[in-house]
Design a protein around this nucleic acid. Structure first.
Lengths: 211, 211
DNA sequence: CCTACCGATCGGTAGG
DNA sequence: CCTACCGATCGGTAGG
């Protein structure tokens, strides 16, 4: 088996940056996790900054790619928002360390990487804002502000990475479905209620749907 | 005017911990912000840890107090949730540095403070979970899981502190009202829709919502 | 409030 | 992959 040493160092750095922060984790800590001495790391890595940059930039690229794919996978605007939320939840259940480092430690990047990442963050946010603006324009969504709704949805899905545990009470799919519903509810669409009304059976007061 | 030196040092530490992280900000940085030399700080402060502990514990206590007051200010379960969300948003617009440090840097607290803060966090979360569980029990709220809904609401409101600017497009009250609506929507209550129905007038096609 | 100074640890290099 | 070592900086103390 051929070992990918850079990948090993990156992974150890990822775990330690996520746990202790960029400045809280030392190169010695990273080396110890790999049963090495600190100077040996430099055979595989340019320096501590490069590790941070690789993690932060790579994570933003991945999030951007997945979110775009989710949006492009549907044509209906409500489906797009639901899939975007679902995919984003799964992104956070699968990459909790990555997102924690990307969001908390990017301020410690040297320029020009820091500015680059800031732009990537804004682009990511705008993917969500754009969906909601289109939904509002099409009179499907009702929100006081697409921007505030986008921020709300982004933060609540990102939060999943902080408490999700694979062995916990909920599977990643259950959480994704649940937060997909939450996202739609935030923009004024209640899927369950609509489904109940379609079935027609329940004693739902009429005219409860949208304006 | 009598200067509160501990308060000054705490405030400078708060700003710098929020910006650079606990390990990213040095005692020398804090002293520089106050036009002092680092050793002079120790006339007012026991040490760096004490500053972090004071900030993190104090912030959790404040959040807990405000959230309890909001819940006790109403009897109707939907009003309780709305007020809790509104108050929590204002807490974050007013204490962005505090919450950032409290949530990101508490891992760097020495024991037993770290465990104490972890308990305080769980208590805070349970205030929100309890509201939602009561709302579900009373058949007012509809959610797949009160816990997931509480997490979602908590994170989206906490996120406000990261982008809110006093000179920005929205006042803290506008944001609070908006997120109060979002919180109710997440648990399946749409305030605007209900109000519109009470007025009754609009020509709403029935059952038009979602696929 | 200061200067002078402490031991420890930081990221990183030299050289093998 | 290692040992030996670099200058810089860390939180904090001594002493005034």
């Amino acid at each position: 088996m051929r070992a990918n040493r850079f990948g090993d160092v990156r992974d150890a750095a990822l775990t330690l940056f996520a746990k202790l922060g960029y400045h809280g984790a030392s190169m010695k800590d990273i080396a110890s996790a790999l049963r090495m001495r600190a100077p040996s790391l430099y055979n595989h890595v340019v320096g501590k900054q490069e590790l941070l940059r690789d993690i932060v930039v790579g994570t933003h690229e991945l999030a951007d790619r997945e979110l775009r794919a989710a949006i492009e996978s549907a044509t209906d605007i409500a489906d797009q928002l639901r899939r975007a939320a679902e995919v984003h939840v799964r992104f956070h259940t699968r990459n909790p360390r990555e997102w924690r480092v990307a969001s908390r430690e990017f301020v410690h990047l040297d320029e020009p990487a820091r500015s680059q990442v800031r732009r990537m963050r804004h682009e990511l946010e705008h993917l969500m804002i754009d969906i909601i603006e289109r939904g509002v324009a099409a009179k499907r969504f009702r929100v006081a502000s697409p921007k505030l709704a986008a921020y709300a949805i982004f933060r609540m899905t990102a939060g999943v990475g902080q408490w999700y545990r694979p062995e916990g009470d909920f599977s990643d799919n259950e959480i994704a479905f649940c937060f997909g519903d939450f996202a739609l509810r935030v923009v004024g669409i209640d899927g369950e209620r609509a489904a109940r009304e379609r079935r027609g059976a329940t004693a739902a007061p009429r005219g409860t749907q949208r304006s």
